[in-house]
Amino acid sequence: MASIRRVKGENLYIRYLILSCWGLFCLMPVLWFLSIGFRPRTEIITAQPIYFPTLSLDAWHMIWSDWPMAKYLRNSVAAIFGSVMIDLVLAIPAAYSLSRYEYRGREDIGFYILSTRMMAPAIVAIPIFFLFRNLGLLDTIWALMLVYAAINLSIVTWIIRSYMTDIPRELEDAARTDGAGDLRILWEIIIPAILPGIITAAVIAMIFVINEFLFTLLIASTPDAYTMSVALANFTGGSDGVIYNAIALVAFLAFVPVFLVVIAIQKHLSRGLTMGAVKG
């Protein structure tokens, strides 16, 4: 314990008490919810809560056989992947322009892009709904992809811009005198050099897409276009009430991959979450 650095007057017991309490507060509901996923429905809502239930795989069978869970999963993955791809294709050139060139209106354009992140989904929900209805895109994952891409475009652009700004100007000058054109510099020099930033941006975008709820609810009104998130909200099973054990399992199925990816980019997380404003 000799290696623990502390300031004079700081009490280590209090430090660990505070941190452990919050840790428990974070984990207890999660663990309890996990136990819901592996108990029979009869033991979920009872007169007295049951803390040590009997083990049951009912919910596991249910989500795969009674519901098209594989389809929801596929929809989720396709929508996430597609939207992140759209974002990268649009954001990388935009970020390159915003970080490497001096021109009139640059700051305003950058700020406009940022400000779209500030727009509440509810504000644009109705027009977007009508737009996609008129385009015949309601209840398709294409519509989801387009909306998700729009939601995250600002974040992705700003994160990538922040990483690009860190690349020394000399590198670009060297490539230019070596005979590379602007697009060649972007593709062969800048993009490889900021790959961690691009991955970070993609992961942050993924987190926000998974969190998106309102648009998905409006655009995907039939199971054909359900993603995991909205499918969950619709697991109310009509007269059966809320089927909590299935919900719990699906929630964990969606959680695990996200968790692993986020741990992998831990170092870049703070920079990503603040759109590059805070360098971790």
Binding site: P168, E170, L171, D173, A174, R176, T177, D178, P192, L195
Partner: peptide, 19 residues
């Protein structure tokens, strides 16, 4: 343009492509 002038430049910070 710089790319067409056929000059080669050596920089203070070396500017080697890190990847």
């Amino acid at each position: 343009d710089a790319r067409d002038r056929d000059v080669a430049m050596v920089f203070q910070g070396y500017a080697l492509y890190p990847n």
